[in-house]
Design a protein around this nucleic acid. Structure first.
Lengths: 87, 87
DNA sequence: TCAATATCACTGCCTTAGCAGTAAAATATT
DNA sequence: AATATTTTACTGCTAAGGCAGTGATATTGA
């Protein structure tokens, strides 16, 4: 599960799965997320060149969260906390 | 941490943090990931409209993984396993 | 301090993502 | 089976993402 096509394909299915269970059509989800219907269609189809703001909008509408983690995550979180709390 | 600008801002910092620790310049990371230098710059700046294929390439180069999870994740994983194993 | 390196922020060019509209194909409902 | 709804897969259009190149502004190191 490290190649792009696989990841996006599965993500598309994840979106579709949630949408269906929520009883929404692609157009309803598109309106809810504030994107075009083609974008929802493309995401569910696994298109790899969608822009993250649009993807994020659709995921948020379906209560799907994104998480990023790298090998230096712990150190980063510590450092990032100081950057954001100090004014 | 649910708004887009915040998420992308933090992700940009995460990338930069990993890149610096790896001792790479933006151009070296760009070449490594197979994207343009402007794209690395934009990601680190927190640009929200980058395309996921480019983002994914940069994250992969830095060993940063993405994970998606929604409320129906368990059910989805069960269903998805059947879809992918059955030929 | 001074020089080398890196980053920033802008440019013009080309490509294409996103959009609504549409008709055909596939699903679902009665 | 017949009908309604939804999804698919295309269209042309417009806006902007990605790119390399560039000079100005940091940042780093000797």
């Amino acid at each position: 599960m490290s190649n792009l096509a696989q990841v996006m394909g599965k993500l598309g299915e994840l979106v579709r799965f949630h949408r269906k269970k929520a009883g929404l059509t692609q157009i309803q989800l598109a309106d809810l997320a504030g994107v075009g219907k083609s974008t929802v269609y493309d995401i569910e189809k696994g298109k790899a060149t969608v822009q993250i703001d649009n993807l994020f909008a659709v995921l948020t509408a379906m209560n799907i969260s994104i998480q990023f983690s790298g090998p230096l995550n712990a150190a980063f979180e510590r450092w990032y906390a100081t950057q954001t709390s100090d004014q």
